[in-house]
Design a protein around this nucleic acid. Structure first.
Lengths: 268, 268
DNA sequence: AAGTGGTCTAGACCACTCT
DNA sequence: GAGTGGTCTAGACCACTTT
């Protein structure tokens, strides 16, 4: 028995049973997963290298790679080329409150994302701002109660916190509300686009949000710099004015590991 | 050129460029993904077999397997041993309305899940019901405003629609509310446990829900029979009575595939 | 230069499904 | 039995990171 080699060691790991029904690479993944959950490998630390695992278990490289890949698909580990495989760090979570679009916050003169992020001590940025007019996808048009072919002003942008992308958003506003207003400017002014919509005579009454989750498309993974094994939220928010007319739909993709969404339900 | 072999063919696929920067297996995955998105392979249909893809692209088996595995991790395809790799079917989506716990629904005498599922034309089942008393995890205890070591009645169960599991739920109710009531019975009676809690003198005022999403733990994937590449929602609901006292916390894991969550936000 | 993960090949045997 | 995917081996070369 080799005496106390320290570093990212295989000490927490046992042996595998090649005759078991459970595939060897799954057994290896099970042992690594258990060790991670027991915090024997802590967040951000390096797991044993492929070579170390091959030697420890006496198996071929593909076998340990399959095990490591499984952990990555589960979102527990991330590989860094030339460096090693690390226990995935969980970014600080952003909690979205159910009253985050209340007018009293808007009145403070800041768009929701900027105000909240600064309050939480982060540095908010917005980039990739694109503004154009287009006919929205059918799903969106239905929510806006628009007829076929009716155009909207589209605002697409990406939000970052401390330089890390966390969310992309695409807003659709009917042209008769948005055209010729600051909504078509890259910077829509104090209070964000909701303030501008209200100035157009559409005081906001309520919002609905529709939340789903799935694995990202490759393009979304790129835009949000997502690690493998991290799903995204898709959040479709519709804003209604006092006449129950939908005035905006915002289609948002968020890194699921950066967000917890809070909502309040009445018991009536 | 072979004339019109039908079946799951490689017709929609092009060739790869081995000198490209993009790995060959990623190029293959890109082509399959594009074909799926163009609906050239429809939901539930078989993709070309590994052997067909090897021949079409002139590559080794591991290369096509890596491509197919990538699609599975993205939730676009599922492999069925001995049969083939299929474009993943999306199960019918269950839309959860923001008023689903309103008292008027409860008064109808059914628990929320059963009433809703029947209304949507599905056959609801509940199984794996386990009831016991235990000290809740710290996260839950905090939401219930319980001191350290204070026990709760725990109700754990799994919900199925037409025999397919869609959700597991664990409810925690302080013992001074639940002990000795029908809450400790497998069948808590008409209106479900919320009706029983109200009968104990805790009329419900509101609920909060905390939504997050992640890849499932292996045990969750088993319980919900999740395909690879399908994330789960974790939804933690807290029920408050008219005195703002938390009276129940329900910790739910749902197949993200099967749910869209709807919420309503006031503009105040 | 040495160590790491990324990609790819070529082959083997197995378990499952369908006919 | 033929076809499918599941697992595993043994090796090769590459690109990236660190020393």
């Amino acid at each position: 028995m080799r005496s106390c080699t320290l570093r990212s060691d295989t000490a927490p790991l046992g042996q595998v049973d090649p005759t078991s029904d459970r595939a060897v690479f799954r057994q290896i993944a099970d042992q690594l997963r258990a060790a991670i959950e027991r915090k024997q490998y802590e967040e951000g630390t390096k797991l044993p290298s492929e070579a170390q695992l091959m030697e420890h278990y006496g198996v071929a490289r593909m076998t340990v790679r399959n095990a490591l890949q499984l952990l990555q698909a589960e979102g527990l580990a991330v590989a860094e080329h030339g460096k090693g495989v690390y226990v995935r760090r969980r970014p600080p979570v952003r909690r979205l409150a159910s009253d985050r679009f209340a007018r009293r916050h808007r009145k403070a003169g800041k768009a929701a994302f900027l105000a909240e992020t600064e309050e939480a001590g982060g540095r908010p940025t917005v980039d990739s701002i694109k503004i154009y007019e287009a006919v929205p996808p059918p799903e969106i048009a239905a929510k806006l109660q628009l007829g076929e072919g009716e155009p909207t002003v589209v605002r697409s942008r990406r939000y970052l916190i401390d330089g890390h992308p966390v969310e992309t958003a695409v807003s659709y506003i009917p042209v008769d509300i948005a055209r010729g207003t600051a909504i078509q400017e890259p910077n829509p002014g104090p209070g964000g686009i909701y303030a501008r919509i209200e100035e157009q005579g559409h005081a906001l009454a309520r919002f609905t949000e529709e939340v789903s989750a799935r694995m990202p498309m490759p393009e979304e993974a790129r835009a949000l710099q997502l690690a493998p094994g991290v799903p995204v939220f898709r959040l479709i928010r519709t804003a209604y004015d006092l006449n129950e007319q939908p005035v905006e739909v915002c289609d948002t993709i968020m890194s699921a590991d950066s967000y917890v969404l809070n909502y309040e339900l009445p018991a009536h």
